[in-house]
Simulated assay, not measured.
Amino acid sequence: MTTPPGATAEVTIAGDSDVVRVRQLVRSYANQAKLSLVDQTKLVTATSELARNTLVYGGGGTATVQLVDDGRRKGVRASFHDEGPGIGDTTLALADGWSSGKGLGLGLSGARRLVDEFDLDTEVGRGTDVTVVKWAR
């Protein structure tokens, strides 16, 4: 099945099976955006970590996946939202090699390295929003 440009899909993240659904959706969109196999793998890995973080640290939330086109290239945007406790120290959370020990071991810094664009918006008591984009080369 082909998804039209600009199409958006949302997945509620409430359990492990939802993390798997996010991975499958991202892989499908990445394939349709014609990302290379290496870039598909990078994006799926990053979004898997972010979906797991949404579940484990945010208490669940949503993932929104969208095919994007900036006129020069196609790509995939994935946004994760939770209403959890937020991140108190973003500098530490984004530090290379830092992990709480509960995720895949990549942490936010690892996810950031795997994508072309990374945006983190968080506040203690408000939750966290993370948006990533991977562009076809």
Rank of each mutant, 00 (worst) to 15 (best):
Q40Y: 03
L114G: 04
Q66L: 12
V38T: 15
K42D: 09
Y29I: 00
S48L: 12
V133A: 03
A46I: 04
L67I: 04
R112F: 08
A111T: 02
A63H: 09
G71Q: 12
A63V: 11
Y57E: 10
S28D: 13
D119V: 15
T45N: 09
Q32H: 12
V19E: 04
R21V: 12
V26N: 00
T131I: 02
V65H: 01
S79C: 11
L94I: 01
L37F: 15
Q24T: 12
K74S: 13
A7C: 09
A30D: 00
D129N: 11
T41Y: 11
R73M: 07
L25A: 01
H81F: 14
S17A: 15
D96Y: 12
S79Y: 08
K74E: 12
D39W: 05
G88P: 00
N53V: 06
H81L: 15
A111Q: 05
T131R: 06
G84E: 03
D82W: 10
D39M: 06
H81K: 14
R112C: 12
F118C: 08
D82I: 10
V44S: 06
E83T: 11
D119Q: 15
R113W: 11
E49S: 07
E83Y: 14
G58L: 13
G125R: 00
V115F: 07
I87D: 00
V22N: 02
A51P: 03
T54Y: 01
G6Y: 03
V115Y: 07
D96Q: 14
P4T: 11
L35K: 00
L114Q: 04
P5K: 06
D39N: 07
S36K: 06
M1R: 12
P5W: 07
A51Q: 06
S28G: 13
G97P: 02
R137C: 07
D96S: 14
T62V: 08
G127A: 05
R137S: 14
L67E: 03
K34Y: 15
A95R: 08
A136E: 09
V56Q: 10
T90Y: 02
A14I: 08
T131P: 02
G107C: 04
S28F: 11
W135T: 13
T54N: 04
P5Q: 10
R112V: 12
S109W: 11
D82R: 09
I13K: 05
T47G: 08
H81Y: 13
R23L: 09
L25G: 01
A93G: 01
R77F: 11
V56N: 07
T122F: 00
V68R: 02
G75Q: 09
K102G: 10
T62Y: 10
A136I: 08
R112P: 08
A111K: 07
V56C: 06
D69M: 10
G110F: 05
G107Q: 05
N53A: 11
L104G: 14
R113I: 10
T122D: 02
S109M: 12
D16H: 14
